[in-house]
Amino acid sequence: MRLVNFIKSSIVGILDMAEELLSEIGLVLMFLGEFLYWAIRPPFRIQETFRQLDFVGTQSILLIVMTGAFTGMVSVLQGYNAMSRYGAESLVGAATALALARELGPVLTGLMVVGRVGSAMTAELGSMRNTQQIDALLSMAVAPVQYLVCPRIIAASIAMPFLSAIFAFSGMIGAYIMSVEYLHIDAGAFMSAVRDYVTSSDVTQGLIKAAAFGLILSLVACFKGFNAGGGARGVGVATTKSVVLSSVLILFSDYLMTAIMF
């Protein structure tokens, strides 16, 4: 009897969570509509967009370079371990390049940017909501979505493909150093395998994904911050939810896009 009740309550809990997630996604999509409405109307906030590009893009480069390099190095070590069993060590560079261009680059860049930028966006907008700064904009006849949200979403969607490319490039440098210097794979074999197996469409797919992740993470971050309530605790809760929802949506949309573009 206790087991039946446990299973019942677990199913109800899972259904509640699914319902909450779906309703969140619905609200985020409505917010997307609001963003699109304001994004195409003047005044265009060029200066603010450049400020956000600097925050999302330029200031993330060091983090992305480090993460990319270590990811490339780890991928080579793991790949070498598996491929050496079949005598295909020379293909480890190509496998790493494909993984970095198609998956690891956009997904890990997305997750890193969620942590560094998405959380900051939510906290900043949430704090502005709680200190009436968003009300002040409205009272001055300035559309807050146009002034605060549009520059952030546009900047993140533009910056993410560049960051993803930097991630993949750093990853390949890490992979090259690990393969050639540490595992003594022939440099020529490493490079020719990369050239033979990686096509421009692999790179394009990765960049398209990265732009989509930029849109998703900034949209969720702005939505959560814009609707944060309840003082400091409310901002904290909104930031946590923003990071969780963005991460889940990035992984989910990665699957969908891969299935479509595969």
């Binding site: 704090s127 502005m128 200190t131 009436q132 700064q133 009300d135 002040a136 409205l138 009272s139 001055m140 006849a141 559309a143």
Partner: peptide, 22 residues
């Protein structure tokens, strides 16, 4: 909203804690 904004441009509002842009 556009019509309301025309009226809002004739307003000034001093919020409780100033609501200055930090």
């Amino acid at each position: 909203t556009p019509e309301l904004n025309k009226i809002r441009r004739r307003f000034g509002v001093l919020f409780q804690d100033g609501a200055l842009f930090d």
